[in-house]
């Protein structure tokens, strides 16, 4: 297994290290839950040791005392400025699960994803994470985390299924909404076997936030001036990123490893533009 996969596995385990919860369906209630993890990891997962930033944004929007969460937005902005979508490539448990599924030997869909699908994640962020929860709180004082309730497959996989398995009362009370969410999850897991990280590319609102900061992040991948434009980097990129500063780049480092001339390398960005934007 590649070094990055070990890091992804370790990150997933560290974020979900409350093992007792998986046995009895209880949740960790310690001080770690004050803090957000950088990736998408449901705080109702029985193993979760910290809070999900997207869940926290919606919950804070419904909080009459605070409304806008400076704490969570500040954390996300800071994380994105440090690494952009580096979090997606190394620390997100749901991204890791999709990558594992992509290893299943099933025919892969190699056609480029239409740009409109790649932009859908920004609409998910604006409508389901920010718009609807904020509007309903302001107009009727109703707490409605639309993304968690209607879409989030990480919540179904990491929280819904384990909690339902461990708790008979909850299992008995599940209804149409669970069926809907389970269908979304199963559909996505199937697509993930054929398309590289479909949720991250099309729907993830957290990826959308970090994507906006990819061009500014301090940690990035640089194309050196001796790039010969062979296109090897573009061919190995599962995210179809046009260059390492592209909003789609998750900083997985595959292009760094595959570059035959060593023209791609990890770098710290201090000034403005990179040395050269090469072929990819």
């Amino acid at each position: 297994m590649a070094k990055r996969a070990w890091i992804q596995a370790a990150a997933a385990l560290l974020q979900n290290g409350y093992l007792r919860g998986f046995g009895d369906g209880s949740l960790y209630r310690g001080p770690g839950k004050q803090f957000c993890v950088p990736g998408l990891n449901c705080y109702s997962c029985p193993g979760a040791l910290a809070a999900c930033p997207i869940g926290a944004l919606q919950a804070m929007a419904a909080n009459v005392r605070f409304g806008l969460s400076f704490y969570v937005y500040g954390f996300l902005l800071l994380t994105g400025l440090i690494g952009g979508r580096l979090v997606c490539g190394f620390l997100c448990p749901f991204g890791f699960i999709q990558e594992l599924l992509y290893r299943v030997p099933l025919g892969k869909w190699r056609r480029p994803l239409p740009p409109v699908l790649r932009r859908l994640k920004y609409a998910v962020l604006l409508v389901l994470v920010i718009g609807i929860p904020t509007a309903l709180t302001l107009t009727g004082g109703i707490s409605f985390p639309a993304f968690c309730q209607w879409l989030c497959p990480a919540g179904t996989l990491e929280a819904g299924i384990p909690v339902a398995l461990a708790n008979e009362r909850i299992r008995g009370a599940l209804g149409w909404l669970f069926v809907w969410k389970l269908s979304v999850l199963l559909g996505l897991l199937y697509v993930a076997m054929r398309l590289f990280r479909p949720f991250c590319r099309v729907l993830c609102p957290l990826g959308a936030i970090y994507a906006l900061l990819n061009r500014l992040s301090v940690v990035h991948i640089r194309t050196e001036s001796h790039c010969q434009g062979c296109g090897a980097c573009r061919r190995v990129c599962g995210m179809e990123a046009a260059d390492p500063d592209d909003p789609e780049c998750i900083r997985c480092g595959r292009c760094v490893t595959c570059c035959p001339t060593g023209a791609r390398r990890w770098a710290w960005r201090r000034g403005g533009a990179p040395v050269r934007s090469g072929e990819n």
């Binding site: 949740l27 209630r29 705080y43 109702s44 979760a48 869940g55 968690c148 179904t156 009370a173």
Partner: peptide, 12 residues
């Protein structure tokens, strides 16, 4: 919020 079971997250 994070210490309580999120019913929306689990699809309740």
């Amino acid at each position: 919020k994070a210490v309580l079971l999120c019913l929306e997250c689990i699809g309740f």
